[in-house]
Protein backbone atom coordinates (compact mmCIF):
# COMPACT_ATOMS: atom_id res chain seq x y z
CA UNK A 1 0.00 0.00 0.00
CA UNK A 2 2.81 2.31 0.93
CA UNK A 3 4.68 1.74 -2.34
CA UNK A 4 1.46 2.25 -4.25
CA UNK A 5 0.88 5.46 -2.40
CA UNK A 6 4.36 6.66 -3.23
CA UNK A 7 3.87 5.81 -6.87
CA UNK A 8 0.54 7.61 -7.31
CA UNK A 9 1.53 10.62 -5.28
CA UNK A 10 4.96 10.94 -6.83
CA UNK A 11 5.89 10.02 -10.41
CA UNK A 12 2.29 9.59 -11.58
CA UNK A 13 1.40 13.12 -10.56
CA UNK A 14 4.23 14.42 -12.70
CA UNK A 15 3.19 12.17 -15.53
CA UNK A 16 -0.46 13.28 -15.33
CA UNK A 17 0.46 16.96 -15.38
CA UNK A 18 2.92 16.47 -18.22
CA UNK A 19 0.32 14.61 -20.29
CA UNK A 20 -2.37 17.17 -19.47
CA UNK A 21 -0.32 20.28 -20.15
CA UNK A 22 1.82 18.82 -22.91
CA UNK A 23 -1.14 17.11 -24.53
CA UNK A 24 -3.25 20.25 -24.40
CA UNK A 25 -0.52 22.35 -25.96
CA UNK A 26 0.10 19.69 -28.59
CA UNK A 27 -3.60 19.44 -29.47
CA UNK A 28 -4.10 23.20 -29.66
CA UNK A 29 -0.95 23.79 -31.67
CA UNK A 30 -1.63 21.00 -34.17
CA UNK A 31 -5.24 22.17 -34.53
CA UNK A 32 -4.15 25.76 -35.05
CA UNK A 33 -1.59 24.68 -37.66
CA UNK A 34 -4.03 22.44 -39.46
CA UNK A 35 -6.66 25.18 -39.44
CA UNK A 36 -4.14 27.59 -40.95
CA UNK A 37 -3.50 25.13 -43.75
CA UNK A 38 -6.92 23.68 -44.37
CA UNK A 39 -9.49 26.01 -42.79
CA UNK A 40 -7.95 29.44 -43.32
CA UNK A 41 -11.43 30.93 -43.17
CA UNK A 42 -11.40 30.43 -39.41
CA UNK A 43 -8.59 32.98 -39.21
CA UNK A 44 -10.05 35.20 -41.91
CA UNK A 45 -13.43 35.60 -40.28
CA UNK A 46 -12.32 35.51 -36.64
CA UNK A 47 -13.41 38.70 -34.94
CA UNK A 48 -12.32 39.18 -31.34
CA UNK A 49 -15.24 41.36 -30.31
CA UNK A 50 -17.94 39.14 -31.71
CA UNK A 51 -16.19 36.00 -30.52
CA UNK A 52 -16.06 37.45 -27.02
CA UNK A 53 -19.70 38.57 -27.22
CA UNK A 54 -20.81 35.06 -28.08
CA UNK A 55 -18.58 33.35 -25.51
CA UNK A 56 -19.78 35.72 -22.81
CA UNK A 57 -23.43 35.03 -23.55
CA UNK A 58 -22.89 31.31 -23.35
CA UNK A 59 -20.76 31.49 -20.20
CA UNK A 60 -23.50 33.44 -18.43
CA UNK A 61 -26.12 31.28 -16.76
CA UNK A 62 -29.42 31.86 -18.62
CA UNK A 63 -27.55 34.16 -21.02
CA UNK A 64 -28.77 32.32 -24.12
CA UNK A 65 -32.24 31.33 -25.27
CA UNK A 66 -31.40 27.64 -24.99
CA UNK A 67 -30.11 28.03 -21.42
CA UNK A 68 -33.42 29.70 -20.55
CA UNK A 69 -35.40 26.95 -22.25
CA UNK A 70 -33.68 24.31 -20.08
CA UNK A 71 -33.54 25.88 -16.60
CA UNK A 72 -32.81 22.70 -14.64
CA UNK A 73 -30.05 21.54 -16.95
CA UNK A 74 -28.63 25.06 -16.98
CA UNK A 75 -28.45 25.21 -13.19
CA UNK A 76 -26.94 21.75 -12.96
CA UNK A 77 -24.42 22.26 -15.74
CA UNK A 78 -23.21 25.62 -14.42
CA UNK A 79 -22.99 24.38 -10.82
CA UNK A 80 -21.18 21.30 -12.11
CA UNK A 81 -18.65 23.11 -14.27
CA UNK A 82 -17.89 25.75 -11.64
CA UNK A 83 -17.38 23.08 -8.99
CA UNK A 84 -15.40 20.69 -11.16
CA UNK A 85 -12.90 23.44 -11.94
CA UNK A 86 -12.75 25.25 -8.58
CA UNK A 87 -12.64 22.36 -6.12
CA UNK A 88 -9.44 20.72 -7.39
CA UNK A 89 -7.66 24.08 -7.54
CA UNK A 90 -8.90 25.68 -4.32
CA UNK A 91 -9.41 22.74 -1.98
CA UNK A 92 -7.45 23.35 1.24
CA UNK A 93 -5.83 19.90 1.15
CA UNK A 94 -4.65 20.53 -2.42
CA UNK A 95 -3.39 24.02 -1.60
CA UNK A 96 -1.42 22.54 1.27
CA UNK A 97 0.17 20.00 -1.07
CA UNK A 98 1.36 22.81 -3.34
CA UNK A 99 2.66 24.62 -0.29
CA UNK A 100 4.51 21.54 0.94
CA UNK A 101 6.01 20.66 -2.42
CA UNK A 102 6.79 24.02 -3.98
CA UNK A 103 6.21 26.51 -1.20
CA UNK A 104 3.53 28.33 -3.17
CA UNK A 105 0.01 28.89 -1.93
CA UNK A 106 -3.18 30.67 -2.70
CA UNK A 107 -6.70 31.26 -1.46
CA UNK A 108 -8.66 28.17 -0.51
CA UNK A 109 -12.32 27.25 -0.26
CA UNK A 110 -13.98 26.99 3.15
CA UNK A 111 -14.25 23.32 3.97
CA UNK A 112 -18.05 23.23 4.02
CA UNK A 113 -18.23 24.89 0.62
CA UNK A 114 -15.76 22.40 -0.83
CA UNK A 115 -17.81 19.57 0.61
CA UNK A 116 -20.99 20.86 -0.96
CA UNK A 117 -19.32 21.51 -4.27
CA UNK A 118 -17.96 17.98 -4.32
CA UNK A 119 -21.46 16.65 -3.78
CA UNK A 120 -22.69 18.90 -6.57
CA UNK A 121 -20.20 17.32 -8.97
CA UNK A 122 -21.20 13.80 -7.95
CA UNK A 123 -24.93 14.43 -8.18
CA UNK A 124 -24.55 16.34 -11.44
CA UNK A 125 -22.80 13.31 -12.91
CA UNK A 126 -25.70 11.15 -11.76
CA UNK A 127 -28.11 13.68 -13.28
CA UNK A 128 -26.24 13.65 -16.60
CA UNK A 129 -26.20 9.85 -16.64
CA UNK A 130 -29.90 9.74 -15.85
CA UNK A 131 -30.60 12.21 -18.61
CA UNK A 132 -28.73 9.97 -21.02
CA UNK A 133 -30.92 7.05 -20.05
CA UNK A 134 -34.26 8.84 -19.92
CA UNK A 135 -34.31 11.38 -22.73
CA UNK A 136 -34.85 9.56 -26.01
CA UNK A 137 -32.85 11.99 -28.11
CA UNK A 138 -29.89 11.99 -25.72
CA UNK A 139 -30.03 8.21 -25.39
CA UNK A 140 -29.79 7.89 -29.17
CA UNK A 141 -26.66 10.06 -29.18
CA UNK A 142 -25.06 8.28 -26.23
CA UNK A 143 -22.34 5.70 -26.63
CA UNK A 144 -20.67 3.73 -23.85
CA UNK A 145 -17.77 6.19 -23.88
CA UNK A 146 -20.13 8.90 -22.66
CA UNK A 147 -20.78 6.92 -19.48
CA UNK A 148 -17.09 6.16 -19.05
CA UNK A 149 -16.31 9.86 -19.26
CA UNK A 150 -18.91 10.63 -16.60
CA UNK A 151 -17.50 7.89 -14.39
CA UNK A 152 -14.00 9.21 -14.96
CA UNK A 153 -15.05 12.70 -13.84
CA UNK A 154 -17.09 11.50 -10.87
CA UNK A 155 -14.45 9.06 -9.57
CA UNK A 156 -11.94 11.50 -8.02
CA UNK A 157 -14.77 13.39 -6.36
CA UNK A 158 -16.44 10.29 -4.92
CA UNK A 159 -13.18 8.83 -3.66
CA UNK A 160 -12.00 12.22 -2.39
CA UNK A 161 -15.18 12.76 -0.43
CA UNK A 162 -14.94 9.22 0.93
CA UNK A 163 -11.34 9.57 2.03
CA UNK A 164 -11.87 13.01 3.49
CA UNK A 165 -14.70 11.77 5.68
CA UNK A 166 -12.66 8.77 6.83
CA UNK A 167 -15.26 6.25 5.79
CA UNK A 168 -14.20 2.55 5.80
CA UNK A 169 -11.17 1.75 3.64
CA UNK A 170 -10.41 5.43 3.38
CA UNK A 171 -6.69 4.77 2.89
CA UNK A 172 -7.43 2.78 -0.24
CA UNK A 173 -9.89 5.43 -1.34
CA UNK A 174 -7.22 8.03 -0.89
CA UNK A 175 -4.94 6.19 -3.30
CA UNK A 176 -7.79 5.68 -5.74
CA UNK A 177 -8.62 9.37 -5.41
CA UNK A 178 -5.16 10.41 -6.51
CA UNK A 179 -5.08 7.83 -9.28
CA UNK A 180 -8.49 8.69 -10.69
CA UNK A 181 -7.66 12.38 -10.54
CA UNK A 182 -4.55 11.71 -12.54
CA UNK A 183 -6.43 9.68 -15.10
CA UNK A 184 -9.01 12.43 -15.55
CA UNK A 185 -6.36 15.11 -15.95
CA UNK A 186 -4.41 13.10 -18.49
CA UNK A 187 -7.58 12.27 -20.42
CA UNK A 188 -8.64 15.87 -21.00
CA UNK A 189 -6.73 16.52 -24.23
CA UNK A 190 -7.51 13.13 -25.74
CA UNK A 191 -11.19 12.55 -25.04
CA UNK A 192 -14.38 14.55 -25.43
CA UNK A 193 -13.28 16.33 -22.25
CA UNK A 194 -11.26 18.35 -24.76
CA UNK A 195 -14.39 20.46 -25.20
CA UNK A 196 -12.73 22.36 -22.37
CA UNK A 197 -9.89 23.31 -24.74
CA UNK A 198 -11.96 23.90 -27.88
CA UNK A 199 -14.94 25.76 -26.43
CA UNK A 200 -13.54 29.26 -26.89
CA UNK A 201 -12.52 28.49 -30.47
CA UNK A 202 -15.70 26.79 -31.74
CA UNK A 203 -17.97 29.24 -29.94
CA UNK A 204 -15.77 32.20 -30.85
CA UNK A 205 -15.69 31.22 -34.53
CA UNK A 206 -19.46 30.85 -34.89
CA UNK A 207 -19.86 34.06 -32.87
CA UNK A 208 -17.55 35.82 -35.34
CA UNK A 209 -19.47 34.48 -38.35
CA UNK A 210 -22.81 35.44 -36.86
CA UNK A 211 -21.66 38.80 -35.62
CA UNK A 212 -19.30 40.16 -38.25
CA UNK A 213 -20.63 38.52 -41.43
CA UNK A 214 -24.24 37.69 -40.75
CA UNK A 215 -25.06 40.57 -38.40
CA UNK A 216 -27.19 38.28 -36.28
CA UNK A 217 -27.17 37.00 -32.72
CA UNK A 218 -26.15 33.44 -31.94
CA UNK A 219 -27.49 32.93 -28.43
Amino acid sequence: MHTLHNLVSGPLVWLAFIIFIGGSIYKLVTMAKEAKKKDPLVYEYWDGNYAFRSILHWLTPFGSVNWRKNPVLTLVTFAFHISVILVPIFLLAHVLLWKESFDISWWYLPEAAADWMTLIVIFACIFFAGRRMIRKDVKYLTSSSDYWILAMVAAPFITGYWAHHHWPMYRLMYILHILSGEIMLAAIPFTRLSHMLYFVFTRGYIGSEFGAVRHARDW
Partner: peptide, 16 residues
Protein backbone atom coordinates in the same frame (compact mmCIF):
# COMPACT_ATOMS: atom_id res chain seq x y z
CA UNK B 1 -9.44 19.81 -41.38
CA UNK B 2 -9.27 21.22 -37.90
CA UNK B 3 -12.76 22.64 -37.99
CA UNK B 4 -14.43 19.29 -38.56
CA UNK B 5 -12.17 17.62 -36.02
CA UNK B 6 -12.89 20.24 -33.36
CA UNK B 7 -16.64 19.88 -33.98
CA UNK B 8 -16.57 16.11 -33.73
CA UNK B 9 -14.26 16.04 -30.70
CA UNK B 10 -16.11 18.78 -28.80
CA UNK B 11 -19.62 17.41 -29.18
CA UNK B 12 -20.52 15.98 -25.77
CA UNK B 13 -23.68 14.31 -27.10
CA UNK B 14 -25.86 16.43 -24.79
CA UNK B 15 -28.82 16.75 -27.12
CA UNK B 16 -29.24 20.48 -26.47
Amino acid sequence: GARLKAYVESCVHCGL
